[in-house]
Simulated assay, not measured.
Amino acid sequence: MFRRTGRRLPERLSGCCLKVLGIVVLAASLTCAAAGSEAMASDIVVEMTGTPDTRFSARWEITRADGGRRVITEQGRLPTRRHFQGVALMAELIVLDDGALWLEVHKGGSRSRASIGGKESRISISVE
């Protein structure tokens, strides 16, 4: 433990201590900010099932922790699974055949489900 003696630190030493303290505080702030943005981003898993071989088109918009966005468009067949990394997902899916599509989105501890069926039926879903 330090004992208070009433003596002041020399001017040069106190200035140096303040600079070091400022650097330590700045480094800690930057580390916490980086850890916070990484903690906000999470795995987003999309599972699509339904009538086997049913064709679909999809537009995925993924929002990253830094606020940037990535858009992916694709066509595929059921069943399929997608994995994204981000803080939010907006999706629009269109069934291209007469089959049914069941959609399940997992993010963190949450799960969202939706289903559609019939040619040209559409679904939009947003997960944050």
Score class of each variant (00 low, 15 high):
1 M>D: 08
2 F>M: 10
7 R>N: 11
8 R>F: 12
10 P>G: 12
14 S>N: 04
14 S>G: 00
16 C>E: 14
17 C>A: 15
17 C>I: 12
18 L>G: 07
18 L>E: 14
18 L>I: 08
19 K>Y: 09
19 K>M: 10
21 L>A: 15
21 L>R: 15
22 G>T: 06
25 V>I: 15
25 V>E: 12
26 L>R: 09
27 A>D: 08
28 A>Y: 05
28 A>H: 05
30 L>W: 11
37 S>I: 13
40 M>G: 04
40 M>Y: 11
42 S>F: 01
43 D>A: 11
46 V>E: 02
46 V>M: 06
46 V>P: 02
48 M>T: 03
48 M>E: 07
51 T>G: 07
52 P>A: 12
54 T>I: 05
56 F>L: 09
58 A>N: 05
58 A>C: 06
59 R>G: 05
61 E>Y: 00
63 T>H: 04
63 T>R: 12
64 R>M: 12
68 G>A: 10
68 G>R: 09
69 R>A: 09
71 V>A: 06
73 T>I: 08
73 T>L: 06
74 E>Q: 09
74 E>T: 14
76 G>K: 01
83 H>D: 12
85 Q>C: 07
86 G>H: 00
87 V>A: 06
88 A>D: 03
88 A>S: 14
90 M>A: 15
90 M>L: 07
91 A>Q: 14
91 A>H: 01
92 E>G: 08
93 L>G: 02
95 V>Q: 07
97 D>H: 06
98 D>S: 14
98 D>M: 05
100 A>S: 15
101 L>H: 01
102 W>F: 10
104 E>L: 06
104 E>W: 02
105 V>G: 00
106 H>T: 08
108 G>F: 07
111 R>T: 15
112 S>F: 10
112 S>Y: 12
112 S>D: 13
113 R>P: 00
113 R>W: 06
115 S>A: 14
115 S>G: 11
122 R>Y: 01
122 R>G: 04
123 I>S: 02
125 I>H: 03
126 S>C: 04
126 S>I: 03
127 V>P: 04
127 V>Q: 04
127 V>D: 02
